[in-house]
Design a protein around this nucleic acid. Structure first.
Length: 502
RNA sequence: GGCGCAUUGGUGUAGUCGGCUAACACGCCGCCCUCUCAAGGCGGAGACCACGGGUUCGAGUCCCGUAUGCGCUACCA
């Protein structure tokens, strides 16, 4: 039997990093086992689903490099008729029944309260939850049909046995059992329009799509029993279930856009200059580990090679970030990993990403791919060493690509304004460098050190001043490399300009 | 309230059949390197393995209980 898995997001917002991780694990499992990876958009809730959200999910998947679905994308809303048919069929078979109770009004916001309240009153009454006291549960099929034909609105509920338990073995959480008494007669179709509800739709679609392994967030673990019941009613074998631990905020609350903002949205990472492979690598390590293998930086192929459901954790993972410190806007390890990728990944793979970043910032020149290609590669190789994200190439790295750059205030104070002698030394240094021939690391260094000696100052004074004069920054690569890369003419101009800033 | 799941340094994790003086990565501190900052190298602080019992010569590892956290409990998904 070939493995078939699916990622089934509901398009009611941006792609959440937790959902992205579920997608990733499904993808890894499929590729590992030589199975099929499918996408199903769960747009059953037409009120909240948007095309824009669907687009952003698709984009996010593409960005992560796991958008290579093996079959056509399934839109759940288009299968509504099948879901309805299945439920009605269960009514015929006596495994479900029509509930003619008038539909109660409820809104998302007060549902949680209602649940809590119901729990309280039940506890107070010591009644224990008897979800099967519904007066329509045992209505005869004839009577039920008659009332339906008469146009009386009804919902369809699954008839859950009074006694017994449901069982399934979760590939991550192990043996799971739940008493039937804990499960109410869940609604399959809404009253009135008879639109299918989540649990029904998922099961029918998973059967239809031939899904063999359902890999999803742990928030579905307890509800899985309901789905098992539906599989049983439909007389179909259940797939293997594998639930994934949740990703929590630093205060251990569920990560949500409302409370935690853009850190939870996958597109944020793309927009903030993350390397897809780096973020993917980080995400994979949240809730899964390759065991005794200590190596954390892994290529996609290595992840596929090592991935297994057995390596998935059971405890939730905390996504560690600070809402007040901009340097820790997301998990530090994710940032570290991205920097690691930026400086060590094959330059050829990095270049296109740098190109897009420079294009977006209006710093790109076509020559970087033609006559100036060697210079461009040398420069990127040089500056990537201390960058963290792609944004740094257009930010801190701006002076390498444009003459219009800002001088960092702190750098100015530290390296230029400190010694007024620089005012007259900088232009002289410029003149000296203009005469350097040939323009190489060694000759530049020689010239600068000789100049410093003649002027009776430490070379470091001129080096640091030059760094700020040439790049606007107080930190950066070894200065002789910078001189060389910036070029003789630009160096001279910038050194002379900087004299006025002293 | 009920049911379920979890609990190893600040965070992510490793700890196979019980032998741990508890390992790795990020972060933090120090030193080296040095023209700055990173990177890199070396070293360090930080966990009585949630707590309490039990089994055992011996428990992070097995059993029971408690606490805490999270999830579910909806004609949302």
């Amino acid at each position: 039997m070939t493995v078939r898995v699916r990622f089934a997001p509901s398009p009611t917002g941006y792609l959440h990093i937790g959902a992205a991780r579920s997608a990733l694990f499904n993808w890894l499992f499929a590729r590992k086992s030589g199975g099929k990876f499918l996408l199903r958009v769960e747009d059953t809730d037409l009120q909240r689903s948007t095309d824009e959200s669907t687009r952003s999910i698709l984009e996010g998947m593409e960005w992560l490099g796991i958008g290579d679905y093996d079959e056509e994308i399934v839109f759940q809303s288009r299968n509504a008729d099948k879901h309805r048919e299945a439920a009605l069929h269960l009514v015929e078979e006596g495994k479900a029944y029509r509930d003619f109770t008038p539909k109660g009004e409820r809104s998302d916001s007060n549902v949680k309260q209602e649940i809590a309240e119901r729990a309280r009153t039940q506890a107070a009454a010591h009644t224990g939850a008897d979800h099967r006291s519904n007066p329509f549960r045992d209505l005869s099929l004839e009577e039920s049909n008659r009332r339906a034909e008469a146009g009386e609105p009804f919902a369809v509920r699954l008839k859950v046995a009074r006694e017994g338990q449901t069982h399934f073995t979760d590939a991550v959480y192990g043996e799971q059992a739940r008493d039937h008494s804990e499960i109410e007669d869940l609604v399959l179709l809404r009253s009135g329009d008879l639109t299918p509800l989540y649990n029904l739709s998922v099961v029918v679609d998973d059967i239809e799509m031939g899904i063999t392994h359902v890999i999803r967030g742990q928030d579905h673990l307890t509800n899985t029993h309901k789905q098992v019941l539906i599989y049983e009613a439909l007389a179909r074998p259940t797939p293997v279930f594998a639930h994934l631990p949740l990703i929590l905020a630093p205060n251990k609350a569920k990560l949500s856009k409302r409370k935690h903002g853009e850190v939870v949205s996958l597109t944020t990472y793309r927009d903030r200059g993350f390397i897809p492979a780096a973020f993917r690598n980080y995400l994979t390590l949240l809730g899964w580990s390759p065991g005794d293998e200590q190596k954390e930086i892994m290529s996609l192929a290595e992840m596929v090679e090592r991935f297994s459901l057995e390596g998935v954790h059971r405890s939730n993972a905390v996504f560690n970030f600070s809402e007040t410190d901009p340097r820790q806007w997301t998990d530090q390890k994710a940032l570290w990993m991205n920097a690691e990728y930026v400086r060590t990944m094959p330059l050829a793979e990095l270049l296109p990403m740098v190109k897009s970043e420079l294009e977006a910032a209006g710093l790109w020149r076509p020559e970087y791919e033609t006559e100036e290609r060697a210079w461009f590669e040398r420069t990127i190789e040089l500056i990537r060493q201390r960058f963290i994200t792609l944004k740094d190439f257009s930010g801190q790295g701006r002076a390498y690509f444009s003459d219009e750059f800002e001088y960092d205030e702190a750098a100015l104070a530290k390296n230029l304004k400190k010694d007024s002698a620089l005012r007259e030394m900088l232009p002289r240094l410029a003149a000296r460098l203009e005469a350097v021939e040939p323009w190489t690391l060694e000759t530049i260094e020689q010239a600068l050190r000789a100049f410093a000696e003649e002027a009776g100052v430490k070379a470091a004074l001129l080096i640091n001043a030059s760094r700020t004069a040439l790049t606007g920054q107080s930190v950066g690569p070894s200065m002789f490399d910078v001189f060389e890369v910036i070029g003789r003419e630009r160096c001279a101009v910038r050194l002379r300009n900087a004299a006025s800033l002293v």
